[in-house]
Design a protein around this nucleic acid. Structure first.
Lengths: 231, 231
DNA sequence: ACAGGAATATGATAAATATCACTTATAAAA
DNA sequence: TTTTATAAGTGATATTTATCATATTCCTGT
């Protein structure tokens, strides 16, 4: 990994409102002592599937893909997620080892806190526990919803769904650079690469999107939404 | 719902070891005061999608399907689950309303605890909080894994997967009565009813299973496992 | 600037899956 | 029991998606 540091600015971190709202100033200071920040360049692997879980990790900035190896050694993308949505998922309190990998789609900073320290916080601070439970609940519900949403749709609907996901959830813009290859989109929606490419071409030919390499501009979001809900 | 009662036997309930292990005898007695048991007959709906969440519910006995309505008014089955796997899912601390329905596949008993009481337990008992977090984490990871497992497979692999799921996870037997119709299996694995039936016929013709109406006997589990891992 | 490799793109064809039509079995209701 | 509805089963056909072959473009390292 590129850099790592220990200087603490957690008091002013946006993340504080997300799950650390119920911690006192002292707790936050203490948290800082148990925390490190790691920076990853685009493409670097943050978590390796099978690795032992001993830290609570969350995304401070950047963008990552969460994926797993399938039996036939292919990659299946579980979700693509942005800051303040946990990386650690919930497996941390259940499993011994990660059953997924995480890699950086853009330059990314990850906060790493000793897991035992988080556990001691949970034991001593019920409100913090509820906050964390709630947050993790939301994240997992979202992953499940996404997975079901995708499964429900056909090829066209799936590609439309993913484009809308990037436009709305990730970039909040109709114009964005795809952070993934066509093959990765295919791994995400469970379709072949060729058909993903073909579908994007269809959308382009139909005047729904403009494509300049990795750059996508959605020009007819109404029709894209229709395709996403229909298919 | 058929019957409901209030007599408390929580001290001796198997569920106590699952999430209530960290509660004192007093807590358990208090829990009983905030708890009711509801019985549902096969086919009855336990939770309606869209209903307000104000109770923590879990399955004491029986079998349920968790499902949601899709946009085109079809049913999509999220999971089929047995006792000691929560019904409430994690949405309880996040959402206002259930975004799924639950119905009984077999006669089922559900324990219902006031949500505010659970929250007060969480606040005052960190170990209980961790226990619950861990349990919910495991359940949700399982749902996600299942969803991804299914998406990864083709028709044959999916049907094989579901049969193995019933045999291993639900009934722990190679001989069991299917608790669902062929159509429900289709809704579960995202394939057409006709193709589910056809695949079951194929398995029967290949000597992998025996079929007597709803009763299934797996006669060649090795081959079924192979089909599940291959497809 | 160039070479080489990977990603993108597109057509043709094969394979998988859905749909439709219809029959038979099963179970609930009169 | 008969009636009726619903689920199960099967074949034929249409549709969707995957695979394969082959260009073309884009990027990376030299």
């Amino acid at each position: 990994m590129a850099t790592s540091g220990r200087y603490c600015i957690c008091e002013h971190c946006d993340f504080r409102d997300v799950v650390f709202a119920n911690l006192s100033e002292d707790d936050i200071q203490e948290l800082c002592n148990h925390k490190e920040e790691h920076s990853y360049r685009k493409g670097e692997i943050i978590i390796h599937q099978g690795e032992k879980i001993s830290y609570f990790k969350y995304l401070k900035s950047g963008l990552v893909k969460v994926y797993r190896k399938t039996s036939d050694d292919d990659e299946q993308i579980i979700t693509i997620t942005k800051p303040f949505e946990f990386v650690s998922s919930m497996a941390i309190f259940e499993a011994e080892k990660y059953n997924f990998s995480v890699s950086a789609l853009e330059d990314t900073v990850v906060c790493v806190v000793n897991l035992d320290y988080i556990k001691s916080l949970l034991i001593n601070n019920g409100r913090f526990a509820i906050g964390l439970l709630t947050k993790i609940a939301g994240i997992n519900d979202k992953i499940i919803r996404q997975c079901l949403d995708i499964r429900q749709r056909n090829l066209t609907g799936r590609v439309a769904y993913v484009l809308l996901y990037f436009a709305k959830e990730i970039y909040s813009s109709h114009l964005f650079d795809l952070p993934v290859s066509r093959k990765e989109i295919a791994d995400y929606i469970g379709m072949s690469t060729a058909n993903v490419i073909r579908t994007l071409s269809d959308f382009r030919n139909d005047g729904i999107i403009k494509v300049f390499g990795k750059t996508i501009e959605i020009t007819d979001i109404g029709r894209l939404e229709l395709l996403s809900s229909r298919g």
